[in-house]
């Protein structure tokens, strides 16, 4: 009984450690990715709109990195593709551009938000995992009190205090995950909004002609 209970409390602690490690890794990586993408997009937008010709802009898009550069590459690829009658390449320039941009946006959005689900999951479940460990520990403490028949403060307080550690760890793992989830979602939304702006402008610029 004692063995099982302590191993379950330990197990919940280990799971929480795993949660915490995973969520913090995602947090660091996401911060780095968002910061880098925001900078790349800013630079790309500036250079793109300063380009003197569409050819220059295309050249720039081929070399640049970032979300908007990738969208632009997709757009230019659509424009270059010969209309061979396949459905994929049918329709007006505007239609084809819109289709390419939408696909590109969705793909980028998916990759931007990947990992955020892990943060949401950790934020939602870590407290419960901790609580589970604590409840199990307390349950065992009460059982052993029942067996020994003595209910001194020392018998009760020690094991319960130890079991509460699991709840503390659960909260410690959940709080940064929830905060980072909200932050990451906002950053991703901002990046997507910028991409949408760029895509709209791009379509307006090149749809006619």
């Amino acid at each position: 009984m004692n063995n099982l209970s302590s191993s379950i409390v330990d197990l919940s602690l280990w799971v929480l450690a795993l949660f915490s490690i995973a969520s913090w890794t995602v947090i660091l990586v996401k911060i780095w990715i968002y910061t880098r993408l925001a900078r790349q997009d800013r630079e790309f937008h500036r250079w793109f709109w300063q380009a003197r010709s569409v050819a220059d802009a295309e050249d720039l898009a081929q070399r640049a990195k970032g979300n908007s550069a990738e969208l632009a590459r997709r757009g230019f690829a659509v424009l270059r593709a010969a209309n061979d009658g396949a459905l994929e390449r049918s329709g007006s320039r505007r239609l084809r551009l819109e289709r390419a941009m939408r696909d590109g946006l969705q793909a980028r959005q998916r990759s931007l938000e990947s990992g955020l689900m892990l943060l949401a999951g950790v934020g939602a479940t870590a407290p419960f995992v901790g609580l589970f460990g604590t409840v199990w520990g307390i349950m065992d403490a009460l059982k052993s009190i029942g067996v020994s028949g003595s209910a001194g403060l020392d018998v009760v307080a020690g094991p319960i205090g130890e079991a509460l550690v699991a709840t503390a760890f659960g909260i410690a793992a959940a709080v940064p995950a929830v905060l980072a989830y909200n932050y990451g979602l906002r950053r991703a939304k901002l990046l997507v909004a910028e991409m949408e702006n760029f895509a709209t402008d791009f379509i307006e610029l090149l749809a006619e002609e």
Binding site: L28, V29, W32, I33
Partner: peptide, 14 residues
């Protein structure tokens, strides 16, 4: 590489 570095840092801190 960034992912690996982040993981290492997080592991070390934990």
């Amino acid at each position: 590489r960034v992912r690996l570095t982040a993981l290492m840092i997080v592991l070390a801190v934990h």
